[in-house]
Design a protein around this nucleic acid. Structure first.
Lengths: 243, 243
DNA sequence: GATCTTAGTCGTCTGCCTGACGATAATCAG
DNA sequence: CTGATTATCGTCAGGCAGACGACTAAGATC
C-alpha cells in the first residue's frame, strides 16, 4: 500500500455513532450513555467510538454496539447505516467525521455500561430532543450534534416501518398482532384501529407467519403468535395516519 | 482545538464521490470521468475528491460537482447525501472513507472535464453496471467500488421519485406533463399510461403549478407548461408498476 | 357462577384511488 | 385534406383503507 503524499489531504478521525431504538412501555426509547470525559463530560450522548484501522464501518458499528451495550446485532436486532456527519466544528478537539448507524432492537434487559461510558440508559425519545417545536424535557441536550443524529434516526425508523417489515425488529422472536400494533403506535405516536390493523398485517403475504401457539400475556382473549415472515418490503405499505 | 492523542485513533482520508444522474434521450445517464492517474488509470470512475480541512461534507460535494462538471447545485439540481463506503480494502493506497452524494440534474450541455480527470461523459447507467444479472456492456467496470455506489444511487433515485416530487429535478424549470412522464419512464425503465399519469400528477396538490404557457416542442397538440410546486412529499405516492 | 373487563378476530359498508381504455382536441407533415 | 402524434378528458370496474358493528375467549370481580 503506497501512501498518498500526506500533504495532499487532511487527516480525519472517523467514528461510528449509534442510534439504538426500542419500544418500552408504549414509548419509543433511545439508548444514551453518559460521557465520562471531556468534552461534554457528564452529558448524555449516543454510544459510539473510533473506527479501527482494519475494520469496515458496519463491523465497527456492530462492535461498538456489543461493547457499549452487550447487544449482538444478530440477536433479532436490525442494523443499518443512517447518515454521515462531518461538520468541521462538530467536535471541538479535531476534525471528526461520524458515520451514524441505526439499530432497532426488541425490548431488552437493562443495558450495561462499558467503554468510556459511566452509565447507559433507555430514555423516551421525546425527552432527548425537541419534537414539534417543543423543548426537550431535560435540561441538558445531547452532546455534540447527537440530537440531530437521533432525530434523523427516529425519522428514518418512523418512515421505514411504513413500507418495510422492520417493525418486527422491535418485537421478540414470537409476538402477537397486538404487540406489533403497539410497536407502530409507539413509533408513530398515534392510535391505530385494532381491526383494520389486524386485517392489514395478516393479509399482507410474507409479513407474518403463524407459529401455531397462542398467548394471553396481554390479558383478554388469547392471541395467535407469529414470527416475522420473509418479506422485507410491504406492498402496499402500511399507511401512517395524517397528523 | 486540543487534539486527541494521535495514537488513540487511526488517520483516515475522507473523500466525496458523486453519483450525478440525468435523463437524456429517454435513458437514465450517469456522469463518469476517466481517471488520469493510478490506481485504475484510464478507467472510468465517479467524480469526486478529498474533503478539505475546513469544509462540510455537502460543501465538498458541491465544490467537486462544480469543479469537475461546471454544474452549480443551485441551478435546479438536487444534491443529497447517499451513503458512506469505508471498506478497508476499497482503495489500494490507504484507508479512504468516501461519503457518496447523489445529484439529480436536468439534461445539460456536455460536461467539461476538470481536476485530475482527462475527460467526462454521460453514459446510460445500464452500460456502467450490471442490472438484473446482466453483464455491463463495457469491458472495464468502474474503478474502486464505484459500480456499487452507482447502483445504490440509481436505486435511491428510482425509489425516491415514487414518494417525492424529485423527478422534477430532472426537468428544466418549465416542463410539460409528457416530459415529466418520460422522466419516470426513463428512470424506472417502464412505459406508463399517459392518461392515468396526467390525471395523477395534475391531481396531486402542490406537485405541479401551471405557468400559463404552452409548448409544442414534442410535436402534436400543444401541452401546458408547469413549474415544480412546493410539495416535496407526494401523498399518495406514484406507484412503480410491478416488474 | 354471573357479570364485567380486556383483547383478539371476523365482517360489512362506503369512499377513494388505480389500471384499463374509449373519445376528443390541437398541432405538424405530407 | 389526411394521417400521425401528442395532450387531455371521461368512464368503469376492482382493490384497498377507514369507520365501525358483532362475536369470541380469557381473567377479574362480585
Amino acid at each position: 500500500m503506497s501512501p498518498y503524499d500526506p500533504s495532499a489531504f487532511p487527516p480525519f478521525a472517523v467514528t461510528v455513532d449509534l442510534v439504538v431504538l426500542t419500544v418500552r412501555e408504549h414509548a419509543l426509547c433511545a439508548l444514551s450513555v453518559r460521557r465520562g470525559e471531556p468534552p461534554y463530560q457528564g452529558r448524555w450522548a449516543l454510544p459510539g467510538g473510533f473506527v479501527r484501522a482494519d475494520e469496515d464501518l458496519s463491523q465497527a458499528a456492530a462492535r461498538e454496539l456489543a461493547e457499549e451495550t452487550g447487544l449482538r446485532a444478530q440477536s433479532g436486532a436490525h442494523l443499518e447505516q443512517l447518515a454521515t456527519y462531518g461538520d468541521p466544528q462538530r467536535d471541538p478537539r479535531m476534525r471528526v467525521v461520524s458515520v451514524a448507524h441505526l439499530v432497532l432492537a426488541p425490548d431488552l434487559p437493562a443495558p450495561r455500561a462499558g467503554g468510556d461510558a459511566r452509565s447507559a440508559r433507555w430514555a423516551p425519545v421525546g425527552t432527548l430532543f425537541a419534537e414539534g417545536g417543543q423543548e426537550p424535557a431535560e435540561a441538558a441536550p445531547l452532546a455534540f450534534d447527537h440530537a440531530r443524529i437521533l432525530a434523523d434516526g427516529v425519522e428514518r425508523a418512523r418512515s421505514k416501518i411504513e413500507y418495510s417489515s422492520l417493525a418486527t425488529a422491535f418485537c421478540p422472536p414470537e409476538f402477537t398482532v397486538g404487540e406489533l400494533r403497539r410497536v407502530y403506535e409507539a413509533v408513530w405516536g398515534v392510535a391505530l384501529d385494532p381491526r383494520n390493523f389486524h386485517r392489514k398485517v395478516t393479509g399482507t403475504v410474507g409479513f407474518l407467519v403463524p407459529t401455531g401457539g397462542t398467548t394471553t400475556r396481554q390479558g383478554g382473549r388469547p392471541a395467535q403468535l407469529f414470527r416475522a415472515g420473509g418479506a422485507t418490503l410491504l406492498n402496499p405499505p402500511m399507511l401512517r395516519p395524517e397528523v
